[in-house]
Write a protein that binds this DNA or RNA. Structure first.
Length: 557
DNA sequence: ACGTTAACTTAGTAGACTGGAC
DNA sequence: GTCCAGTCTACTAAGTTAACGT
């Protein structure tokens, strides 16, 4: 072992024994949001038309609701009921006995106050804005970094989540519940023995001081709505996260070497005598072909009703012997992660289709499609086929291999950079569609599309004009150049318009950040002379520094 | 063997920021 | 300089998976 601090290069190369993530970790603890400031006496809350001065804790929670009044959430029954219940818990007994119905509450003045504050912030002078920025920077400087094995690293989320109303996605049964303020007494600090221990805010103490170097988090607390643990962890550009990311893609590349065998195997398993094996084979077929998520079981009533592959129910698929000229079509319609709808009509092989019919026999719509299968069984099987192989590796593998194939197909040697970018985005789009990464079309989409079209039209007129000038000037070099410039600009805008239109409901960011081996993109940029900044912005380049460093144009996923 | 929980990745969105048009 | 549209970032919810405990 290389002694600490003697040779940093070798220290960097050092691989720790099993499970150890670091040898030294020092940080300043999390940043706590500012204490609640009661509203001025001039701002009233009314119950049943009468002004009521709320106690500070009831007022704070009332303000959370008042601030959201423009949001659709506050019109939802579940949200309102959960809010009222939790709000009443924060009230004094007197308040509680008075305030019983939300529709008798008038938060109007609180809401107006909040809007005025937002407006005032927007109208701050340059100097005031700069002062705010400087103050924020001070917080980042103080709490935003840690020392991990002698490297200063940026922390990803160094701020304790402020209190507020829980905003679950989709039809979440807990939406509107109070997410409570976290105190230092709730927080566990993790750092190395012998490091400078973070100082809790004055008059407070930490819940626990821990020295666990087998985990990567610096601090944690248990959140009250779902009872889950929240962590303070490093930024994506850190060495620790980068190495993990690299590892992930290496596992996916390993799958590439044995995916044919695995596919052969699950095709055989479709005919197995064991029902559970057949179900596993069909699930694997979906996960591989459609890049579905594993689909863990979820506790009913605790979360929104969403599913993945293993948790699909009979009601989520419809079988068509014939559909739109295809045979054996499975129609999927279910809500996946974040309650995003997955809708797809997929022709499948006969064996899969027959099995699905069998799995659905004598079942109710609400019954599990794969009643003899769960994610643990599936992953156990996968790990036995290849070390490190789990359901989600298929998503990574299929996403990355699709990008590589699409880039090969779509890239034309002589294209200019703008055309190259369109090709890249189209390849990226193919992956996003595979992974079902959707977005709500931007509210301003139609307008901005029209604006772009108007610009294109203007440019076309300019081009006509420039061309006629060129004729008159009889091939004068200056006019020639003007026409060329005009044509280039027009072409660029037209490509932009195409890209924009095709991207209306597709989100490219998630796949770019989490599923596409960055080395594919780096190699492609090098090969075709596309500046990397056209593909990755600053923070993406930071995150993928490891890949940018090691990849030449010959890289193959 | 099983359910539970801890730890970590993946996800969409709200709002901050920025830079070009006017 | 102001405004606005597009981009970026912070935020935190919602997944997956391995380890743990009974």
């Amino acid at each position: 072992r290389v002694p600490t601090g003697i040779c940093l290069d070798l220290w960097e190369e050092e691989k720790y024994e099993d499970g150890v993530k670091w040898k030294f970790l020092e940080h300043n603890g999390p940043y706590f949001p500012p204490e609640y400031q009661p509203v001025p006496d001039s701002v009233h809350f009314y119950y049943n038309g009468k002004p009521v001065k709320l106690s500070p804790s009831a007022e704070e929670v009332a303000l959370f609701f008042a601030q959201m009044l423009d949001h659709e959430y506050t019109t939802k029954k579940v949200f309102r009921e959960n809010f009222l219940k939790d709000w009443r818990m924060e009230m004094t007994p007197e308040e509680r006995s008075l305030i019983k119905h939300l529709n008798k509450c008038d938060f109007g003045e609180m809401h107006a106050m909040h809007k005025a504050k937002v407006e005032a912030r927007k109208n701050m002078t340059k100097e005031e804005k700069q002062a705010v920025k400087d103050a924020n920077q001070k917080i980042v400087d103080m709490f935003g970094y840690c020392l991990l094995d002698h490297h200063k690293e940026r922390i990803g989320n160094f701020k304790i989540e402020p209190p507020g109303l829980f905003r679950g996605r989709g039809e979440h049964p807990k939406q509107g519940m109070l997410k409570k303020r976290i105190q230092p007494e709730d927080v566990i600090i993790n750092c190395s023995k012998g490091s400078r221990v973070p100082v809790p805010p004055a008059g407070h103490h930490w819940k626990e001081l821990r020295h666990d170097n087998t985990v990567t988090w610096l601090a944690s607390w248990t959140e009250n709505v779902q009872g889950s643990i929240k962590y303070i962890m490093l930024n994506a550009n850190s060495k620790l996260k980068g190495e993990k990311d690299w590892e992930k893609y290496e596992v996916a590349r390993k799958l590439k070497t044995c995916v044919d065998d695995i596919r052969y195997q699950y095709n055989q398993d479709l005919k197995s005598k064991q029902m559970s094996t057949r179900q596993r084979a069909v699930a694997l077929y979906f996960i591989d072909k459609l890049a579905l998520r594993a689909g863990n079981e979820k506790e009913e009533g605790e979360t929104a009703d969403t599913v993945g592959c293993c948790s699909l129910r009979v009601e989520h698929i419809t079988l068509h012997d014939q559909l739109e000229g295809n045979e054996c079509v499975v129609e999927f319609d279910f809500l996946g992660k974040d309650s995003i709808r997955y809708y797809n009509k997929v022709p499948v092989i006969k064996k899969v289709f027959k099995n699905l019919k069998l799995f659905m026999e004598n079942k109710e719509p609400g019954d599990d499609l794969f009643d003899r299968l769960n994610t643990q069984m599936l992953n156990k099987h996968l790990t036995s086929l290849m070390p490190g192989l789990t359901a989600k590796v298929f998503r990574t593998y299929n996403a990355s291999i699709t990008l590589q194939q699409q880039l090969k197909e779509l890239t034309n040697k002589g294209d200019n950079v703008a055309e190259m970018i369109l090709s890249y985005n189209r390849a990226n789009r193919a992956v996003a569609i595979l992974c079902n990464h959707q977005r709500a079309p931007p509210k301003t989409f139609e307008q901005s599309m029209a604006n772009l079209q108007a610009k294109i039209d203007t440019r076309k007129e300019q081009l006509t004009l420039a061309k006629s000038e060129l004729k008159q000037a009889k091939k004068e070099a200056k006019s020639k150049a003007a026409v060329k410039r005009c044509e280039d600009h027009l072409l660029k805008m037209e490509l932009q318009a195409t890209d924009k239109e095709e991207n209306k409901q597709i989100a490219l960011g998630t796949s770019k950040l989490n599923y596409l081996d960055p080395r594919i993109s780096v190699a492609w940029c090098k090969k075709f002379g596309v500046p990397l900044e056209k593909i990755y912005n600053k923070s993406q380049r930071d995150k993928f520094a490891w890949a940018i460093d090691m990849t030449d144009e010959e890289f193959e996923f």
